[in-house]
Structure formats: C-alpha cells, structure tokens
Design a protein around this nucleic acid. Structure first.
Length: 688
DNA sequence: GAGCACTGC
C-alpha cells in the first residue's frame, strides 16, 4: 500500500515530517479554555509577556499579536488592558470577532472571569442582540460587522481607547474594511491603540500595512508562545485520483491500527461527505467482533441545530467517533478530543467574476495556513496525527494564504458604505489588499444603475439612506418603491425571505419527493417571491413553531431568522417614513414593485425551457428549487433574484412579469461601460 | 429534470 501506515512506519522515514515553518506555528499555542485566570497566568507564557505586551501597546500605535486560536489572547488581553487603566474616563476596550457565537461566548467567559454580570462591565454587541450598557460596559466584544456599522454613526469610533481586531488572518470582508478605516482614523486620533491579532505568521503583512510611510516603530509585532501538543504530519506518497475514497480508506486504517482517539475528516461539501459516509459504512460489516466500534457523523452548515450538536456528544466507551466535515470545523466549530485529522487538501470557496457578474463555488487546494489550522485540530487536548491526502511535494504548489474575501466578492454594498463614510475616491482607499479594479468598477456601475450614486459618483439622497440599511441595494430599492405600489408589508417579508438561505429543507426521515409535496402547498402561480411570502405568512399564522416547520419541510432556524430580519428592516422603513401597508392580495402591484429592484435581472423564456438574459443574452437555467422549474411563465418573461455559475449558469428565485414593466426602468439607464442603452437590442424584443 | 463552502449587518 502506498499510503503511510500509521503506527508501523518509523518516524522520519516513510512518514514525511512537517516542514519547519509549520512546526513553528503548530508549537505556539493554546491554553485550555477551562483554566481559570489565576492558573492560566501562573502556567502560561502569555503571563511572562504581559508586561512586554502592555509596554508595546503603550508605546506603539499598532501592535500585532500572533498566537493560535485559544491561546488566551482573546480573553486575557482585554482584561490586562482594563487592569492597566485603558478603560478609565468612560473609555471602552473593544475586541472584534468575525462570528456571532465567538463574540457571545468569549464575552460570557470574560464576564465570569472578571466576576461581572454579562452586559454590565463586560458585554457584547451582535446583530439583533445588544448585551452591553452604554455607560457601564468597559470591555466590549462585538462582531467586526457591528464595529464597521458603528463607524457610520461615529466615524472616529471615539468611545474606544483600544480596538483589538481578532482573528484577522481570516480576512473577512468586514475585518479588511475596518482595518482600512482604522488606518485612516489613527491619523486623526493618534491616541487610539490598535491590536491586530492573528493565528498565523502571515501577520507580518499587517505590520507592513500599518508601517507604510511611517517610522518603523510605529507598529510592533509580538508572538505569544505557548505550549501545545505536538501534531505529526503524514503525507501520501503519490497523489490520489479520488480523495473521498482515500479519506474513507484512511479512516479505516486509523481505526484498525491506531490507539483510541476521535477522527476529524475535512472534505469540501455535502455531496462528498455523503459519499464518504457510504464508503465507510461498507467497511463496517468487515469489522472484527472484538474490535472497537465506529460512530460516524456528518458535519456541515446545512444540518439542523440538533444534527450539528450531535458531533459534540462523546462516543460511548469502546467506540471511536469519526466526524466527516466541511470547512466549518476549521474555524467555526471546535470539537474537543480529536486525535486524528484526515485532510483532503481541498476547500470550496466562493469566487466572483466582475465581468460577468457571476459568482460561483470553486473547489481549490487549501492554503498552507488552512492546512496548518486543520492539522492543529488534532492537537487541542493531546498529541495527534494529521494525515494529508497529497504528497509532501505538493506543499510547494499551495498558496500561502486564501485570497482575502474582498478580492473575490461583489463589492456593491461595501462600496456604498465606504461612500457613505465620505470615501469617494475608492482608488485612494488604503485596502489591506486591493480588490480587482474590475470589481470596483462593476460595483460603481451597479450603484449607478440602482440610483444610489449619481453621474458625479456621489451618493444620491436615497443612496445615503440605503447605505445604513442592512440589505442589498436591489432589495432596498424595492422597499423604497413599495410606497408607490402600497405593498410595504409584503415587500418587507419578501426582503427578509430572500436574504435567508435554505428555507425549504428535507426533514429527517422524509423523502425528497415528500418534501417537494409540502413545498407545493405554498406555491404561488406568480413565482418564488410570492411562494416565499406564503410560507412566511403561514409560519406566523401557525404560531412560529418548530414542529410545524418540520411537518412542512421548512427550516425553523431560517424562518426564525427571517422574523428577526423583517423586524429590523421594519424599523428602518419607519425611520425613513415609508408606510408599511398591505396590498391586500394584489399580486400585480407586488410584481411591479419587484421589477423596480430587479429590472436589470430580466429574462425571456425560450422553447427549450431555458431563459435568455436581457443583459448579454446569456443562456440561463432555472434552479431546481424554483416553482417555475417545470412551468413556462404565461407571459414568457421573469425577473430573478440572483444568478450563479454552477455547471451551468443558474437563476434562483424567479417571478413572472409583464415585459413592458421592464421598460419603465430600463429606458432611463445607459450602460456606462459599453455606452449602450439597456434598451438597445433585447429591449426591442419586448417592444416588438 | 437537478442541487449551496462559510460568515456578517
């Protein structure tokens, strides 16, 4: 067998060793979350660095801290700063997180450690939830999205003395935007202290970013060393044509040959996970009667809360737990007790093509940083082994890091928000990493077409308002237009329902066909938007219950989220003086209102069952989830919520419209890039 | 007649 056999090969021979840099990263890490402050300070090197850390923060404007997730920086550092007096005179110490759960759980832990009530001296702020006190809170954990939003109200973030941007290596859209703003804010507020915290050594790029044009000691970098359990890394001797099959095989080999300990497998998506589970279940009957048993679990975001929680349950004595997961287990979900990691070496990421305005999911090789993070998952509670399903030689071909999200996403909303902050010249904004110029141009064009930006590139009155509103511009446009069509009530619901994903699910134990039947109960002739509206209304009519959702093949989690989003958007409507009135079942008005936002997303049905886009005459396929998947729209025309590249170009969430409705909006718009009027070619089809 | 990695306001 070409694969390194666990436990049989002599270390250093057929087991290829981890590279030196990886070992550096792997050996600088964590402190168990359960340790109290006192013992942590006694036992951990972070304590030794405390004074040096505080000195660095005192002396330099920007301090970059490197230490792996869980090393204590997130919980301890803000407390040190508090003790050192950074929160006197009403000042607040902020610490941002990319994810909501992290912000809440860390705040809870720190509140307990500090002997304070959560929401009092220590608090958190996430969307829909503000557990903090304007006067009393001194240490505030918040999502970086919330901090970015705060700059729209207080551009200098004046209530904070220190801002710590945690998990900066993840390079989420809001992390990058907030870093860009902080660089700008610091020029006007030199007293503001910034801490950028990262789990990877790549953090030196943040140092360069903040030091550019300044004296070299403007920023400093400090590494939090720690004790971590060693993780050995093994590689395949030759690359495999089928890493899913190989993953199952590797799990089996570990189970047969290795000491007890749970296994975590990284694959790219639901499909692969299910295939791997099938492969593994074929091995099970060959398990010797005396051998330990295997408990195999899937983990991905599409699962219900209960199914996700199952991965945390310890396996029974004498049973080994195997979790086959997507990238969700790389950073978002931490499972203790993992001793073996099997890494396919691949990940699915979203990429965006600004020229075609299409986004797609691509399966790509992981970055070195990701591979290191995945391996680290084996060494959280004891020493472990990571099996990489590719040859060591392939390491040289892997990128160091995953490209920042800002470089592979639609920038329409971020740029609207930057403009609202007075950053009109986007080429001068100091991006941590510049997005492609094409993406910036495409975003500006979208904003212009949606009436958010005028010919001069400045925000319009409506653009100013929409920038505050947490929805994409097309949807915002419809909310504003709903006043004219007297359908604010319904548009609010549609806005909320189109933002959430995976509304219709296949419940446990039900067949796909059965779920399909349930879904048909909500079906509106006019299309998906009204179908979503029906589902929402039924959900509220039947008491917003989880069992009702289950029996109607709806996701309770998604529906509840829609309720929150709708309530939040309603507040914005009221603030903008927009009426929230019902169209009383007049679907025609509703559909006309949809066109006010979606007029650039028009498509025409053709005889083979596909559609042609009005912009570009691209062949479009209807997503199988659509109620128009099998049916020709009576008028032959639709608008759609979004298009995406899979194997084909697909459109999701369609509604049938009358073609002349498109003209009302299309006539006034000239395509800036091509100079052609939107109504030049295909719009003529409509008129004909 | 076929399918969405993961976040966030």
């Amino acid at each position: 067998m070409q694969f390194w056999k666990p436990g049989t090969a002599a270390p250093g021979s057929s087991l290829d060793r981890a590279t030196e840099t990886e070992q550096n990263v792997l050996s600088s890490a964590p402190l168990s979350a359960a340790i109290s402050v006192q013992s942590a300070r006694e036992r951990l090197p972070i304590y030794k660095h405390r004074d040096k850390l505080l000195y660095c923060i005192e002396k330099h404007g920007v301090t970059i801290v490197v230490g792996q997730t869980g090393c204590g920086k997130t919980t301890q550092l803000p407390q040190y700063l508090y003790e050192a007096g950074w929160a006197v005179d009403g000042n607040v110490i902020a610490c941002t997180q990319p994810r909501r759960v992290a912000a809440t759980s860390v705040a809870q832990r720190v509140a307990t450690e500090a002997g304070s009530l959560l929401g009092d001296e220590v608090g958190y702020t996430i969307r829909f939830e503000d557990v903090s006190d304007k006067e009393r809170t001194r240490i505030l954990y918040l999502t970086d999205g919330m901090l970015f939003r705060e700059t729209l109200i207080d551009p200098l973030l004046s209530r904070y003395s220190v801002i710590m941007i945690d998990e900066a290596h993840e390079r989420s859209v809001y992390t990058d935007l907030i870093l860009g703003l902080l660089k700008k804010i610091r020029r006007k507020r030199p007293s503001l202290r910034i801490i950028v915290s990262s789990a990877t050594l790549d953090a030196t790029s943040f140092l360069d970013y903040f030091n550019a044009g300044n004296s070299p000691d403007e920023a400093t970098i400090i590494s939090l060393e720690g004790r971590m359990y060693p993780v050995e890394v093994g590689y395949l001797q030759e690359s495999t044509p089928d890493y899913v099959k190989k993953a199952a095989e590797t799990v089996w080999n570990i189970h047969m040959q290795q000491t007890p300990g749970d296994i975590l497998v990284f694959l790219t998506g639901r499909d692969e996970i299910e295939r791997c589970l099938e492969d593994l279940s074929e091995y099970i009957p060959t398990l010797p009667r005396t051998a330990p048993r295997l408990k195999i679990l899937a983990l991905h975001a599409g699962l219900s809360t209960d199914e996700q929680l199952a991965v945390f349950e310890p396996a029974e004595r004498g049973t080994r737990k195997v979790i086959v997961s997507t990238n969700i287990a790389e950073a978002s979900v931490t499972i203790d007790g993992i001793k073996f990691v099997v890494d396919s070496g691949f990940v699915k990421i979203r990429i965006y093509n600004p020229t075609s305005a299409l986004s797609s999911l691509a399966t790509v090789p992981v970055s070195i940083a990701s591979a290191t993070q995945r391996a680290g998952r084996a060494g959280r509670t004891s020493s472990g082994i990571c099996y990489r399903l590719y040859p060591q030689s392939a390491l040289n071909t892997l990128p160091r890091t995953t490209p920042p999200e800002l470089t592979r996403t639609d920038l329409t909303t971020p740029i609207l928000q930057l403009k609202s902050l007075g950053i009109d010249d986007l080429m001068k904004f100091e991006w941590v990493t510049s997005p492609p110029a094409e993406s910036v141009l495409r975003a500006l064009e979208n904003l212009f077409a949606a009436g958010m930006v005028g010919e001069d590139g400045r925000l319009t009155v409506i653009g100013e308002k929409v920038s505050e509103c947490p929805v994409e511009v097309n949807i915002a446009r419809m909310l504003f237009q709903s006043k004219e069509y007297q359908c604010g009530e319904e548009m609010l619901t549609i806005a909320a329902m189109t933002t959430i994903q995976d509304v219709f699910i296949i419940p446990d134990g039900a067949t796909g066909a059965l779920a399909e039947l349930e879904r048909r109960k909500f079906t509106a002739e006019e299309g998906d938007h009204l179908t979503l509206l029906n589902a929402y209304n039924a959900f509220t009519r039947y008491g917003r219950s989880s069992s009702w959702c289950k029996s109607h093949a709806l996701s309770f989690r998604a529906m509840s989220r829609a309720v929150s989003i709708r309530a939040q958007l309603k507040k914005y409507m009221q603030r903008f003086g927009l009426p929230v009135e019902s169209c009383q079942g007049d679907a025609r008005r509703l559909r006309q209102c949809l066109v006010s936002g979606y007029w650039r997303n028009g498509a025409r049905w053709v005889a083979d069952g596909t559609y042609r886009s009005i912009r570009g005459n691209v062949t479009l396929h209807v997503h199988p989830n659509s109620v128009l998947f099998t049916r020709k729209p009576r008028s032959g025309w639709v608008v759609f919520h979004e298009m995406e590249e899979t194997k084909k170009t697909q459109i999701r969430i369609l509604t049938e419209i009358e073609p002349d409705w498109l003209l009302e909006y299309g006539h006034s718009f000239k395509d800036k890039r091509t100079g052609a009027s939107a109504s030049s070619t295909h719009m003529q089809d409509i008129q004909a």
